[in-house]
C-alpha cells in the first residue's frame, strides 16, 4: 500500500503554499498518497477569484472585503511590499522556469493529490462550497485529518 502524506495548509502566504505544493508534487512522484487539508488562511488558496455565495452578517462582509480569495491574490510572508514583492517573485519564478502556483495546483490534481477544505473555517468566514475551486474533493473536519494523520507516515503543518 502506498505511504500516506498529509499536509495541513494553514497559511495563505504564497511562499509557504508553494513549499507545501512542491512537497505534495514530490511525494506524488514518489508514489505516495497525498492529502492537502486547507484551513484558515489556507482556504484562500482554494477559493475562486470571485465570491459566488451571498455573505451574511456585517463582520463576514468586512472580512470578505479585506480577505479576498484566489491564488493570484496570495501575498508573500515577507517583503510583500503591497504586492510589489509578490510581482517580483512571480517574475523570478517565471524567469527560472518554475511553474506558477496555478500550474502547480493543476499538476497536483492530475497526479492524484487530494484537496480537503475545513468546514469550521468555511462556516466562520462565510465561505460556501460554490466559492471553492472544483479541485476540492471533500469538505471535512478535525476528525478526518486526525484519522488520516494516524495512518500517515509524514504529517506536516504549513
Amino acid at each position: 500500500m502506498a505511504e500516506k502524506v498529509n499536509i495541513i495548509v494553514f497559511s495563505g502566504d504564497l511562499d509557504k503554499v508553494l513549499a507545501a505544493f512542491n512537497l505534495a508534487l514530490g511525494a506524488a512522484a514518489m508514489e505516495m498518497k497525498v492529502t492537502l487539508f486547507f484551513t484558515f488562511w489556507g482556504l484562500n488558496v482554494i477559493r475562486k477569484d470571485k465570491k459566488v455565495s451571498r455573505t451574511r452578517g456585517i463582520m463576514r462582509k468586512i472580512l470578505s472585503l479585506v480577505n479576498r480569495g484566489g491564488v493570484r491574490r496570495l501575498p508573500l510572508s515577507r517583503l510583500n511590499m503591497g504586492g510589489l514583492g509578490r510581482s517580483m517573485m512571480k517574475k523570478l519564478m517565471e524567469d527560472s522556469k518554475i511553474p506558477s502556483l496555478e500550474e502547480t495546483i493543476k499538476m497536483a490534481q492530475q497526479m492524484g493529490v487530494e484537496f480537503v477544505a475545513c468546514t469550521t473555517t468555511m462556516g466562520m468566514m462565510g465561505i460556501s462550497r460554490e466559492d471553492l475551486i472544483p479541485e476540492v474533493g471533500r469538505l471535512a473536519g478535525v476528525a478526518t485529518y486526525l484519522g488520516e494523520a494516524t495512518e500517515g507516515k509524514i504529517n506536516l503543518f504549513i
Partner: peptide, 13 residues
C-alpha cells in the same frame, strides 16, 4: 534542463 526540484522527478515519474 533548466528545471528545478521537484520538476525533474515529477517528469521522471
Amino acid at each position: 534542463l533548466g528545471l528545478y526540484c521537484p520538476m525533474p522527478i515529477v517528469k521522471t515519474a
